[in-house]
């Protein structure tokens, strides 16, 4: 089943506009249960065969939705996350990019004492390949069923890594994009814990980036992991002090550089890939070495 998403996942989409509708269609065609949409003021309509509600709590009550996927625009996204949390949705996945960081300070504080888990924001979502259960924006064609889990701060690098693996015939259990913002709900370390505990995952690709210390915190956990981890850190060539698109991808201080992260991860026992074109082939070698291929 991979992690978080499975056959019983019932997805409600908050912000059922263009992107929300397009991704709902892709998920439904893939085999995922998309049970409701939420757009305030449009309750009672049916769009793309999906019933729309005014509030998340209605969607939860009527359809037992247990995953919320958020496409709400950035100025209103923190509100949407908190609405899903209050409605008791156990898994909240926020795709939205560009949420003000002080909004996320409040959200993070609420999530700390919550039973719900937040993935993202500014992330591609979560997919469980064997269960064809998808809450996110990832292209489904590149995935191949198998036993490698993929974790990434970046969305497009999830697809890139998955594609490289699939081209070599290495399938995936699933992927989890933790998001490119400085403050996120589920960290790389927590994502590693999920895949380490997943019986359908044998090895993990972790894709980090410059900025912050999340990779060093992940390295602390990798020291005690049983499953092999292959890591790529994006932004080795980025100049310090410049924000590279992601709000979190800015080198401020020595810990934020790619080399500092690579070193911490190597010391923790991970296999570090320096050329982004080598992610798939390196995993192939690691699987062979561990007798997993």
């Amino acid at each position: 089943m991979s992690v978080l998403m499975n056959k019983d996942s019932r997805v409600v989409i908050q912000g059922f506009g263009g992107a929300g509708q397009r991704e709902a269609k892709t998920s439904i065609a893939y085999g995922t249960q998309v049970v409701a949409g939420v757009t305030p003021g449009r309750g009672g309509q049916t769009i793309e065969g999906v019933p729309i509600y005014n509030t998340v709590s209605e969607a939860v009550e009527k359809h037992q939705a247990n995953v919320s996927l958020i496409f709400v625009p950035a100025p209103f996204a923190a509100d949407a996350i908190l609405e899903a949390e209050r409605a008791g949705v156990p898994l909240i996945i926020c795709i939205t990019e560009g949420i003000p960081v002080l909004d996320m300070v409040k959200v993070k504080r609420v999530m700390k004492n919550s039973k719900s888990r937040l993935i993202g924001p500014n992330c591609p979502g979560v997919i469980s390949v064997a269960d064809r259960s998808r809450a996110g924006i990832m292209p489904v064609d590149v995935y191949l069923e198998g036993n490698v889990g993929v974790i990434s701060r970046s969305g497009t690098l999830v697809y890139e890594a998955v594609d490289q693996l699939s081209r070599l015939g290495i399938g995936q259990s699933g992927s989890l994009g933790v998001g490119g913002d400085p403050i996120i709900g589920t960290t790389q370390r927590e994502a590693l814990e999920l895949f380490e505990a997943d019986p359908d995952t044998a090895a993990i690709v972790l894709i980090g980036e410059i900025g912050g210390t999340a990779e060093q915190e992940a390295a602390e956990y990798i020291k005690q992991m049983k499953k092999p981890v292959v890591v790529f850190i994006g932004g080795a060539t980025a100049p310090p002090g410049r924000r590279m698109g992601h709000a979190g991808a800015i080198i401020s201080g020595a810990a934020g550089t790619a080399s500092a992260k690579q070193q911490a991860l190597r010391e923790a026992g991970a296999t570090v890939v320096e050329n982004p074109g080598d992610i798939g082939s390196t995993m192939q070698a690691v699987l062979k070495k561990h007798g997993l291929a």
Binding site: S154, T237, G245, A249
Partner: peptide, 17 residues
């Protein structure tokens, strides 16, 4: 010209490689 900040950074890295 790349889509996504992560892939854009990795593209820079790949060009350097």
């Amino acid at each position: 010209l790349v889509n996504g900040a992560g892939l854009a950074m990795a593209t820079m890295d790949g060009i350097k490689f």
